[in-house]
Amino acid sequence: MNTDMQVSPEAMFTETEIGKQKRWIENVMRIFFLVMTSLMIIPLLLIVGYLLYKALPVLSLEFLFTNPKDNMRAGGLWAPFLGTIYLVVVSLLVAAPIGVFAAVYLNEYARESWFTRITNLAVVNLAGVPSIVHALFGVGAFVLFAGLGESILAASLTLAIMTLPVIIASTTEALKAVPMSFREACWNLGATRWQTIRRIVIPNSISGILTGVILQVSRAAGETAPIMFTGAVFYKAIAEGNLFAYNITEQCMALSLHLFTISTQVPDVTEGIPYGTAVVLVGSVLLVNAVSIVLRIYVRTRKKW
């Protein structure tokens, strides 16, 4: 009789010792890595929570719409807030067309060659240049050589060059996502390269391109070092409630620099104001980022191919 050889159905579906061990190890590892990942998320929540908690006493609409007062020990954020908007808008106007066109070149025109490789390498390196070196470049090139002086224009140009890789990278992603067959179909109808790009490639990737442009805004709004010596100033009084209070050939205040100033250089600042400034800065940056993320998710769900 060979009953020993027969495996009962129960035995077949019962876990062996090794199998149990495998599952146990796998679960332990899964939990271990989950904890590691969560440990990075906790700081984000903690920081935002802590800042909000400390800033609550000062946060109000009035805080946003009044100028800093009393040697920046009291008052609100109007001048720095408006200054940041100026810097971001001007840098966006410069960086967006150059960045999008550069991505179009890299993705649609450039062939595999050593030159293309160097161009890609330059984009990566431009993203890796330290922000303070961008500041030195801004001083050397825009403030002194081009004779713009310390002005919103010089600071924005510095920011634009610094944030160019953000736009190039995400636009390239967006263009790559358009299937090659779309282009081929268009070429076969006799369209030229540029007609294909304008009528087919860009309309099909416009949301992805917008995502990159929005990211550039968030990046430019938070930077401090590049604007410190090229156009942002510690203090400048402007008319409250006037959206055109700055002139782009003059200096301006900026939220990020203002946070640095009142937390390190000015003694006896009213408790809560630095926290309020940090909350407004983080809040606007995260808000802009959230818009870009929502847009991206929306695009993905609507994708037709």
């Binding site: 401090t224 990020s256 390190t264 800065l281």
Partner: peptide, 24 residues
């Protein structure tokens, strides 16, 4: 979800990190 959170973490400006270091 995790990727979005990591992206938000990357978006926090460096001056705010400095401020956190200075206070918290």
């Amino acid at each position: 979800t995790f990727k979005i959170i990591i992206e938000l973490l990357a978006a926090i400006p460096s001056v705010v990190w400095g401020f956190i270091g200075l206070t918290l």
